[in-house]
């Protein structure tokens, strides 16, 4: 069973990567319908990967699934809400995530038994949702910056607000889990906690910057885009396994 799943997982990862590549090429050659078809295939492959890995690990929290989760949510947004968008940024990002997943396609670590807690799953899922929303906000901001438009970034800010809320939920459920399992709400030896707190401060900073009068749209966009890169980095890097050293 395990070997079959691993075999399938590798092949579906390949299909996903090819589909997102097809999507990017079709977008570039102005064929929105074809692009949408490719993206749909990519999204369903991604969904299969996510569900199969998640259910295989149950009742434990699966490890190294963040990349696939974020990619799934971004693919859903692309297919459902950004079909008409001409920007190539999100499809390119999806392709990058699919390539990273292809580099390290299997969940090599066995889950640990303390992760069979509802709070562990909330920590993971809210974290995935938060990071996807924050990356999406950054993509929207980068799109606008690249087009040279001065749109008040209210849509992106709203995404940040909801992403921030999910990040808080993820962080606090992680703390409750940590308390119930290890006896302390914050463990400083876990890189995942350190990076989540770093993200929390970064996006808290963004929310505070709104109250500074000299905070221009251009700066807002740049800050959002940088935040996106940071979020992407802390989400993707730990999931690259032996390849993180290369990066």
């Amino acid at each position: 069973m395990g070997e079959t799943m691993a075999f399938l997982s590798e092949h579906v990862s390949l299909v996903m990567c090819a589909a997102f590549f097809g999507g990017v090429v079709s977008f570039y050659s102005r064929r929105p319908r074809l692009a949408c078809g490719f993206m749909l295939v990519g999204m369903f492959s991604n969904l299969w990967l996510f569900i199969s890995r998640y259910t295989a690990a149950l009742p434990f929290m699966p490890l190294h699934i963040g990349l696939i989760g974020i990619s799934l949510l971004l693919a859903c947004v692309q297919v459902l809400f950004r079909r008409q968008e001409k920007s190539l940024l999100l499809p390119l990002l999806l392709l990058l995530l699919a390539l990273c997943n292809l580099l390290y396609p299997k969940d090599f670590y066995l889950p640990f038994i303390r992760s069979q807690s509802l709070f562990a799953h909330t920590f993971l899922l809210c974290g995935i949702g938060a990071k996807a929303l924050l990356i999406l906000a950054a993509v929207s901001a980068a799109d606008i910056l690249l087009r040279g438009e001065a749109v008040v970034l209210s849509a992106a800010s709203r995404l940040v607000s909801f992403g921030y809320f999910l990040l808080i939920l993820s962080m606090f459920s992680g703390e409750i889990w940590s308390y119930l399992g290890w006896g302390t709400p914050v463990v400083w030896h876990d890189a995942a906690i350190t990076t989540v707190i770093a993200l929390w401060f970064y996006w808290s900073c963004f929310l505070h910057l709104h109250y500074i009068r000299s905070w221009s749209t251009r700066w807002q966009g740049a800050f959002l885009a940088t935040g996106g890169v940071l979020t992407l980095l802390v989400s993707v890097l730990p999931d690259l396994g032996p390849y993180q050293g290369v990066l």
């Binding site: 770093a198 808290s204 900073c205 505070h208 910057l209």
Partner: peptide, 23 residues
């Protein structure tokens, strides 16, 4: 408020350095 912003950014840099140290 400027102090908050500076502190937030310093915290981010510091935590990223912490991430490196944790390795």
């Amino acid at each position: 408020l400027h102090l908050s912003v500076v502190l937030f950014l310093l915290l981010v840099v510091d935590l990223l350095f912490g991430w490196y140290c944790l390795e």
